[in-house]
Design a protein around this nucleic acid. Structure first.
Lengths: 372, 372
DNA sequence: CGCGGAGGCCGAATCGGTTCGACCACGGCA
DNA sequence: TGCCGTGGTCGAACCGATTCGGCCTCCGCG
């Protein structure tokens, strides 16, 4: 493994010059750059990550805490994960994967200076990790929305709106007898952020519309899903619409409805809340509010990068911000160029929420008029 | 962030003493150790990972290449991943996640000295990454079995035996008309190691038993699985047994059989090849050859640690090997204490193959006598 | 009583980069 | 012609650990 000194020698320059060629932090003449780059290529030089981290206090690694908790669909988790990894790579960063949901992992990699930042998934309403996260020397970004997000940066789909929208789509079609098949009890008991928010929005919308609300938690197993579907059918025999917020249950919900003689969408309309891939891999293409998991993961990385770039001193005659290329959702403060001063250390920016959309596929239709 | 010097000062010793207390590589007196540990606790000292990597040439990080390829079930991948992460943590190591399947990622982290070793998943029969892997300065462990594993360390379930065993279980029960619903075409076209090996074993066993072999590739989607099931039923209407080696297809295969009037296991027996969790979360508990994905992932880490511990010079009067606590499968050369000399740099050790077992649950039974 | 050896600790070199201050040469301007 | 500014490069300090050689002390033994 050649070192920077080897490169310097080969190029006939000093080590610092090589470093500056690499980082671009000082101007180096064209010919010199050329020689240096050539030497780097010839020798196959790759800077030693540890040495770099030691000297620059930057590791080019971000930690991703993706706890595999009971009740959360692995497919969805992996969507987030790949979104994060992909986007991180575009910023020349790697991802250290933490799967334990305790704080110890975070503290270890943080205090040990193994990472530049932390992204945390599966946030709960009153997450115990919050205070520790706030105390980190590295910035932290949450995927999800805890009850108190002060001092933290958050990004997620706007699940409250998801709840409203899902129901509204059905009522707009004319459905009045609707049930929600939700996440597993364990997820709710944990007060998982997305589940509670979705539920809140759904309930609010239902009450506003004067509908009876029927909410049925549901295990992700086949038997659990079957039981939940039957329970809903029994509690509301005249139901014509279902919202399903539970990826693992979808196949069984679908087949159970069928077995019970309810055709989809003729007899009952179904709108799912899940990633598009999941909606499309079912026995029938699901009308759904797609969870853009990959995008959200990517957005989390964008936020990390924002937090990592030293706040550009707000000089008015600005060469633009160094192109973080953040395709941020339309929300919160304007991504580029803060309107006025940078504000109180950007700690109070609004959470970045992606607006949800209904994608109509093959499982929703107006209720049949006959029973009316 | 306190440094080792701060600790040394607080404890009234030199920095090297602190280091030796931490590493245990030299004897330090009891009282001194006590003072040092106290100082560490008081200050909340955590060694700087970069500095440590620089000085010791060890990062305590291992790279895991887990490409998310079309056709491989995410649940299974994640089982491996968590197995790796968990076991790595037991050895005080962290995991850097690579999801691209190109070699660039590996080379980057390897040459940059970001990791101590590499674990590679989803190996193909003639994997193009092999030569590069052999050239790495860090050890590499494959989960899977390429055609030519010389110079590489491999671990996996013995999928050839899986193929034989699955079929044998059915024939032992008396079934003679059996079909295999396999992985998606894309997986086979890539010559994915596990798929080909399973198929080979299955074919061999079928021929040995003089059975007609019917193999049906199958997409992981609901429509794909339905199509595959119907195809098999049409090609072999009198079939009484199915082997399914395709996690994502299982729910639909099951429901399709049912819809076609074939009761499981009364009319047709089904044995799956999948992780136990998957077998148990179906509408009926599947008789299956469980893929111990977590264990295999853990075993990969064990192998990494073996490769990482400097080969204990084979002195006969041995204090035992430093307890890597490897629960290795019963295979290959004896894990501890090589029978004779350490052999040619352990490059030629046999691949570590886990022996498969059939776990009988509720989907297999003898064929009904009536049609005979 | 003297010597050898082991136990326990320290000092300094080292790992491989980054970064700041300084230096040099050259061009423009007065 | 002299001075200043600037673009381009170098040298050296520094980041925070690990590790090797050496030194001192104390004990045991002859």
């Amino acid at each position: 493994m050649p070192t920077i000194d080897d490169v310097a020698r080969a190029a006939g320059v000093s080590a610092s010059t090589v470093s500056y060629v690499l980082s671009g932090k000082r101007t180096i003449s064209g010919p010199t750059q050329e020689r240096v780059r050539q030497a780097i290529a010839d020798l196959g030089f790759r800077p030693h990550a540890g040495a770099r981290a030691l000297a620059s206090a930057r590791t080019s690694v971000i930690a991703l805490m993706a706890p595999l908790r009971a009740g959360v669909d692995v497919n969805v988790i992996m969507q987030f994960v790949t979104g994060v990894v992909r986007r991180a790579r575009e910023f020349d960063h790697d991802v250290l994967l933490l799967t334990q949901d305790d704080m110890a992992g975070i503290e270890r990699v943080s205090h040990g200076s193994m990472v530049d930042a932390v992204i945390v998934m599966d946030v709960e309403a009153d997450d115990e990790r919050l205070p520790a996260l706030r105390g980190l020397k590295q910035p932290a970004v949450l995927i999800g929305l805890p009850g108190d997000e002060r001092g933290l940066t958050c990004v997620d789909l706007d699940f409250e709106e998801v709840g409203r929208l899902a129901l509204r789509h059905l009522t707009d079609l004319g459905h009045r007898r609707v049930a929600l098949i939700g996440p597993p009890p364990s997820v709710l008991e944990r007060h998982t952020s997305y589940a509670e928010r979705m539920l809140r929005g759904y309930r609010a919308q239902a009450e506003a519309a004067g509908l009876e609300v029927l909410v049925q938690p549901c295990e992700g197993t086949a038997v659990g899903a079957r039981a939940a579907t039957l329970a809903v059918l029994e509690a509301m025999p005249d139901l014509t619409g279902v919202v399903v917020h539970n990826e693992s249950a979808l196949p069984t919900v679908l087949s159970t409805l069928r077995r019970e003689g309810r055709r989809v969408p003729d007899d009952v309309s179904l709108v799912a809340v899940c990633p598009a891939e999941v909606a499309l891999s079912q026995s029938i293409a699901l009308t759904a509010i797609d969870i853009p998991a990959q995008e959200i993961g990517g957005a989390a990385v964008d936020l990390v990068m924002d937090l990592l770039t030293p706040t550009p001193p707000p000089r008015p005659g600005g060469a633009a911000a160094p192109a973080t290329a953040a395709a941020a959702p339309v929300e919160g403060t304007d991504p580029t160029g803060s309107p006025t001063g940078t504000g109180p250390t950007r700690a109070t920016v609004a959470p970045h929420l992606f607006p949800p959309h209904v994608t109509v596929r093959e499982t929703t239709a107006p209720p049949r008029r006959t029973p009316a």
